[in-house]
Design a protein around this nucleic acid. Structure first.
Lengths: 119, 119
DNA sequence: CCTTAATATCGTATATCTACGATAAACGAT
DNA sequence: ATCGTTTATCGTAGATATACGATATTAAGG
């Protein structure tokens, strides 16, 4: 599964270069990612994907089955998480295999540190 | 300044007892707190308050002056953060002195750990 | 091709968010 | 009591979020 680039306000963001972002960009990106976690269903989706071992596929249908929501609603939540930068999806035949963007948790924590502890 | 209790779905939450919360309550509370950070202005407010030394007061007016928003809009953001559990306000004469709830950052991180890494 | 299965998107209804100006409420000082 | 300062709340408008069913899309298999 190939790496997917994060974006902030449409522009690509390098996970390893938070230092290169302006302070304001940091806060915007932190807000974007936080909005991703601002719904219990999306928290659960990130948890499912973050805990999966690499070999274990997690397709859209698995997520739909795990949540008490309609398929279309889950699809919307997946879109929100994808656009925020939490997850990525890879088409695999008729299914879409989802996983968290690698290092996203550490990136989120780094953004919190820079945005909330910065001067 | 006296300690203010956190709530989850209206019920009080002990900062030191995440273990006592159900898994679902954890995810709901994480979503609530995340929604607090889901706007750049609120990220900036939390940053301002988190970085203040204890002796240094930070009244509502200071926050209004620091943000490019109308007083009523800032007041709304403060209300969101207060209801989410990030901050508390203490009335001091005609002013209201705000600060972050003690240990809230660690609590947020603990919720992330439990909600996103839990089984 | 045509069907089936899996996802995404559309359309829609309701609710919540965000921002502002105007107004109310609380307090200290005159 | 009245005034000015500070903050919260109200009313409102427009944008975004949330949920669902219905429909479109995509790919595999017949």
């Amino acid at each position: 599964m190939k790496e997917v680039k994060l974006t902030c306000e449409g522009k690509p963001v390098d996970l390893n270069e938070i230092g290169g972002m302006s302070f304001d960009e940091c806060k915007k990106k932190l807000a974007e990612l936080s909005k991703g976690l601002a719904h219990p269903a999306r928290v659960e989706i990130v948890r499912m994907l973050e805990n999966k071992p690499l070999e274990e596929r997690c397709v859209c249908g698995d997520i739909v089955n795990a949540l008490p929501l309609a398929q279309s609603s889950v699809s919307q939540h997946l879109k929100v998480l994808k656009e925020a930068g939490w997850i990525q999806g890879e088409i695999d035949g008729p299914c879409v295999c989802y996983c968290t963007v690698q290092g996203i948790m550490e990136y989120y924590l780094a953004l919190m540190k820079r945005s909330l502890k910065g001067k």
